[in-house]
Design a protein around this nucleic acid. Structure first.
Lengths: 343, 343
DNA sequence: TTGAAAGCGCTAACAA
DNA sequence: TTGTTAGCGCTTTCAA
């Protein structure tokens, strides 16, 4: 800002006309004569004039900016979400400003304030792991700030949300294993306290039921399988060395899937020939993992797009128009890496 | 912005005092009486007043914002850089706005314009792969916009830069192998046209020279090793099946390292017992890769910090103060995953 | 077809 | 200790 800034006034002075005429000429107002327009645009070009967005925002009471709060940018999933948001936002004439809460409640509070102070036209939020109280967002929402939650959502605020179809994804994952010919499918789950564990477990059960495979409680492992690889590995070892071992496994997330894979390999089992594994994932498995690996992926890009669409719809609603909050459940994608070897 | 906004005027009206008094009271100006201050801060609190950053920026001709342009946010390296930038920027009272060029020259041009229009106080830039012409940045720089390049830099603009110590990192990588007892060290390099390939090759040569290991041209493979795993794998196979095979390998980047690893494993070689591999990396090798793996990592976080420091120094320099551009070469880190098994 | 004036929210020099 | 005034860059109503 200390830098040289060309303003409308500069152009007006140089051309001996008024700032308002310059302003109108620049936006191709019908009232302005062609000669004036020509002179103005040429000089603007020559001086490298670019409109000051700050002044514009203040004047229009609109920043054309969307604020995003995510837990961490280094997560592949959230990076994809951002790309999806930008994809829609740019086309609609909005820029995007991203801030990371780093999974901290305090940071989330600060971030939401900062975004409000910057008068973003709306916010897209994925809650930090620490957040259990929502006043900071509720008060903004009540003051009329358009808001959409994605992935990590809360029921405490009655606005639109975009989430993953956990049930459908788990169903699909489990059914995929069944379709490959596996009969005894284990499940590495998460703690009972987490809704997501329960929902994914339900999807697993539903797929079994559909194919008339009896549900065997002994095939479902919970404690900490979803938290670190080593636990997942141990639980899988336990399963594999039991009396009636599974021939395949559905893991609630990447961590669990990796642990399972390590256990199976150490047992000398070929994947997926001897042992099938599907993991629910919000990372992208790049070539860093060994194929063949099957995952049910969370649709990050699409989630970003959808959230941005919902938000922009709200922002651009006429003042009297009432937009009903809606919750969108996004279909997951089944991704098969490497060659899928049916049994 | 359509949302309810409490302004200084509202407080002034309600208290029957002037806006300037409110403004002064809020920033604890010494002239204001304690009672007035108390009344103002209490009402501000009650009404949930927060200052409008837009108005502030316009008034102060300073946005307290740093603009960042990176090729892609999904790259782990760039995500870490951003965290480093934020770390320094927040402490210094700046917010950070990030835009991705998606490796496109046109997008980079647009991004730089958008950041300028938003009157960021300075810019941190890592060039897109496509960029070979620098007028869009040069013109901003000449207009006095503070600017620092990092990682992907150009000599066309005479501003501060932060880069990785490619020579030192390669030297370290190679020496690490030597110290482990390896004697015939191959090198998967990149195309001659890339400065980075040449510099890393020089580091490799220098380490060999220091330890009196003769340089053998036949151990250096170039074509496309750095571009895709399969090429790297083939080149390594070639090396391994030759008459006088290497006992270890220094790979110019992750891709090449992975290819080499695959080739060695298929040959039945244990890593690092039978075959040592070190890769120069700007990704983080997570548990997704199999340990033990040794890498020389680019210091993303530190790079972000350093770049932000240099930029802020420039931004906050007094008008008459001249800041000489400097180029900082950051030390790389040797990262050893898993247990290092000396020969 | 153009200009003058007011105002978006805020601060600061000057006056009282 | 407080108020008045002007102005940051821009748009827009009203008047000419």
């Amino acid at each position: 800002m200390r830098s040289v800034q060309v303003t409308i006034k500069d152009i007006a002075r140089e051309l001996g006309i008024s700032p308002s005429t310059v302003s109108r000429a620049l936006k191709d107002h019908p009232d302005i004569s062609i000669e004036t327009k020509k002179a103005v645009t040429e000089l603007a070009e020559k001086l490298n004039y670019t409109p000051n967005s700050i002044a514009l925002s203040l004047r229009q009471q609109k920043t054309n900016t969307i604020g995003v709060i995510i837990p961490e940018i280094i997560h592949f999933f959230f990076s994809t979400v951002i790309s999806g948001i930008e994809d829609i936002a740019y086309d609609a004439g909005y820029s995007v400003i991203v801030s990371q809460s780093n999974e901290s409640y305090d940071r989330e509070v600060m971030d939401s304030k900062a975004l409000f102070n910057n008068r973003v036209d709306g916010m897209l939020i994925s809650l930090s792991r620490e957040t259990t109280q929502f006043d900071h967002l509720k008060s903004l929402f009540d003051r009329g700030v358009p808001m959409v939650f994605f992935d990590r959502v809360t029921d405490a605020i009655n606005c639109s949300k975009v989430v993953v179809d956990d049930f459908g994804g788990s169903f699909e994952a489990t059914e995929h294993l069944i379709n490959q010919g596996y009969k005894r499918i284990a499940h590495l789950s998460g703690p009972k306290s987490l809704t997501i564990s329960e929902v994914r477990l339900e999807g697993y059960k539903a797929a079994l039921a559909k194919h008339n495979i009896p549900y065997d409680e002994k095939l479902v492992m919970r404690d900490k399988a979803s938290e670190d690889e080593q636990s997942a590995k141990k639980l899988t070892e336990q399963l594999l060395s039991g009396p009636n071992p599974p021939d395949s496994l559905f893991a609630i997330n990447d961590i669990a899937a990796l642990g399972a894979m390590m256990a199976a390999k150490e047992k000398g089992l070929k994947i997926p020939k001897d042992f099938g594994i599907v993991g629910f994932s919000n990372w992208r498995f790049t070539s860093l993992t060994e194929p063949p690996m099957t995952t049910v992926n969370q649709p990050g890009f699409e989630m970003g797009q959808e959230a941005a669409r919902l938000l922009i719809k709200q922002i651009e609603a006429k003042n009297d128009e009432v937009i009903e909050p809606e919750t969108v459940e996004l279909k997951t994608n089944l991704v098969i890496r490497g060659s899928s070897v049916p049994k």
